[in-house]
Design a binder for these strands. Structure first.
Ligand code: MN
Ligand code: MN
Ligand code: ZN
Ligand code: ZN
Lengths: 143, 143
DNA sequence: TTCATAGTTTGGAATAGTTCTAATTATCAC
DNA sequence: GTGATAATTAGAACTATTCCAAACTATGAA
């Protein structure tokens, strides 16, 4: 069974869990995110999806991305003014924003780290999620 | 010497360091941020500043906020789609976003934490800053 | 099958937040 | 004071996103 088929099944399943249908548009949008995990904007997703579904509309891309976020298949990422970016990496990870290139890299986190970070919260703060963003420059060796 | 005067001096000094002038608009915008540290949007700053400078324009508020950010007197904060928020707290701190109320709280960080977080970066990633955002709910006791 | 219904997509209009522009006003150095 | 430079202002323009109403599609009961 191909990885694309696995993804399609995962997608169909998660959508069904939320009472939603697996449409061609949703599948292609999701596959575009999986295929190139560079945190694209909605416009960039739109451009990539068009080559497979030339008649898709930008509104539909926004709708699909929103749906995928609701189904916990994709994370919406905002760490600066400017368009929202989309990330299909569901493992706990931080983002490294390279200020020279504008590229955003995923940084895997050791399981203990989120615990440690969480532990700095004073009483009365009950966090359901933690987000970590680095800014700086990445050298060539860091692909 | 009053705290307002101290702030005004700090402001004038930092602006001068960047070759900029201390104008009434810049002073009032800065004082508004200092006075109520609730991470207001530009629109909210505009509304507060108007009571002291009724003829100030929204464009000037944006200009002043941008200037204060450049001079490292204020941080611009973006952790979701929606207007940028402004924070005059220069100590290392995280943000806690209360999803019920929409309010954003400052969480002071022990000096070791940023080191620990920083240490998860693989070779090739050179971070100049780290940002931490919690999301969840704050109980009444957490003011 | 056929039809009714609900879900989805679509293009365009509308909106929110911000930035740009060109004209005016304030400040500084001489 | 005068001229140069910096800052403010109102409004236009712009970007990203959401809203809307119409058309289309899938589903599934009769
Ligand atoms: Mn950037
Ligand atoms: Mn919020
Ligand atoms: Zn990511
Ligand atoms: Zn803050």
């Amino acid at each position: 069974m191909s990885s694309a088929t696995l993804n399609a099944d995962t997608l169909a399943q998660k959508l069904a869990d939320s009472g939603l249908r697996a449409t061609p548009q949703r599948e292609v949008v999701y596959n575009v995110l999986i295929k190139k995990r560079d945190h694209p904007t909605a416009d960039e997703v739109f451009a990539r999806v068009k080559s497979e579904l030339p008649t898709i509309s930008l509104a539909t891309v926004y709708n699909c991305l929103e749906t995928l976020v609701q189904c916990d298949l994709v994370r919406a990422v905002n760490f600066e003014r400017g368009p929202t970016r989309y990330c299909p990496n569901l493992r706990p990870h931080a983002h490294f924003h390279d200020e020279q290139t504008g590229k955003t890299h995923d940084i895997d986190l050791p399981p203990t780290l989120l615990e440690t970070v969480h532990s700095v919260l004073p009483r009365g703060f009950d966090a359901s999620s933690v987000e970590i963003i680095f800014r700086g420059k990445a050298t060539k060796s860091a692909h």
